[in-house]
Simulated scan of single mutants.
Amino acid sequence: MNRRTLLKALGLPVIAATGALGWMTAARAVNRYYEGPVTDHFDGVRFFSPGQPQDKGFLELARWQLGGGRKGWPDSFPSPFQDKPPAEVQGLRTALIGHASFLIQVAGLNILTDPVLSDRASPVSFAGPKRVNPPGIAFNDLPPIHAVLITHNHYDHLDTETLGRLWQRDRPKIIAPLGNDAVIRAEHPEIPVETRDWGGAVDLGNGVTAHFEPAYHWSARGINDRRMALWCAYVLTTPSGTIYHIGDTGFGDGRIFHAVRERFDRPRLAHLPIGAYEPRWFMEPQHMNPEDAVKVLAIIEAEQALGHHWGTFRLTNEGVDEPPQELAAALQAAEIPAERFRPLRPGEAWTRSG
């Protein structure tokens, strides 16, 4: 596999080339997905998280890949759960399909986050991270989908094959941060996508609104489009309470989490990533570990947190079952009851009436 294919399959933050020539080329780049005014998080070509570390370079990527320390994963890590959700829920129900893919059922709406039902989180079918458990909800068992929320364009979060199947079946409203409409339309020109900047919002109907909030992450589909599309977290305000969904983020200075708590008050439910965090020297700016996720829970004071982004795709160095173990230790150290922050397996559901 050549370098280009390897980097696309890994979906990692890399620059177009190393050295002065690479940075000069990047400086002359034109954004292929989005045109808009310069803001405090967009320089006219690339998006960024103000005051936070950005890309790692190719040499750092090579240091990680060649440095050892990667724990083995089994070829199969089946979940004991398989969900067959109801067609409609008036209270609040959420079920993990796998990785960062959730089915949220609230106020009569069925909402998917980052739906990835393909066998690999990769641009190619023959290489890249392969799932070690089937989707916790089979495609044919999904109820009619009203909305799809995309957090960013990495292959473990934006699966154009799954989006195409959903569009053909249900014609859901698809929303995403700036620039991701172009990524989706490149594969499916027939699919309309509503995009917003951080601070924007989309009315999903039935009293449910999706708010676009910052995350400390990045984006890329290949080696020449790093940070050309925006990334986000979502806050859903609903008749059954507020839901805070993060696809990927680092903890950073913690400011974005304090802002959510101040703006939206205490969430009823938070979906917090707890995987893809080792080695810390490489992953820390963009991926929380379980200890970081517990700090977020303490800041936002969510009634209930559910851990995701672990145990489905092998992306980083930690073992397949290390995230829930480290989460249990972090909760104990913070004197937070274990039931308040549950690490979900695919097919596992959480329900709250009212």
Rank of each mutant, 00 (worst) to 15 (best):
V116R: 14
L109I: 00
V116F: 08
L61A: 03
I97S: 03
W73R: 04
L149V: 04
P123A: 09
P115A: 03
F139I: 02
N133V: 08
R32G: 09
I111D: 01
A62G: 10
E60V: 05
I97Y: 02
G36M: 06
F81Y: 14
A95T: 15
N31F: 03
A100H: 07
G98S: 08
G91I: 11
L103W: 04
A100F: 03
V148L: 12
R63W: 15
L149H: 09
G36F: 03
F139H: 03
P123C: 08
P135L: 02
R63T: 11
D141A: 14
F47Y: 11
A95Q: 13
D55E: 14
Q105E: 13
H152V: 04
P143N: 09
V45F: 10
V45W: 09
D114V: 02
E60T: 11
T39S: 15
R63P: 07
L117Q: 06
I97F: 03
H99F: 11
V124S: 03
D75H: 14
K56R: 15
K56D: 08
I137K: 10
V30Q: 10
D43G: 07
L61N: 01
N31G: 04
L112H: 09
N153V: 07
L142S: 11
A100S: 15
F81K: 05
V89D: 02
G128S: 10
G51N: 14
T39D: 08
N31W: 04
L112G: 06
W64E: 06
V132I: 15
T94I: 13
H99Q: 09
G98H: 12
P115H: 01
G136K: 05
R131P: 02
G128C: 07
A138H: 11
L66D: 02
K84G: 00
P115D: 04
V89L: 05
P85G: 11
P37E: 12
S101D: 05
K84R: 09
L109H: 06
N133A: 13
D75V: 11
L149T: 07
A121S: 12
D114A: 10
Y34R: 06
L117M: 14
I104K: 00
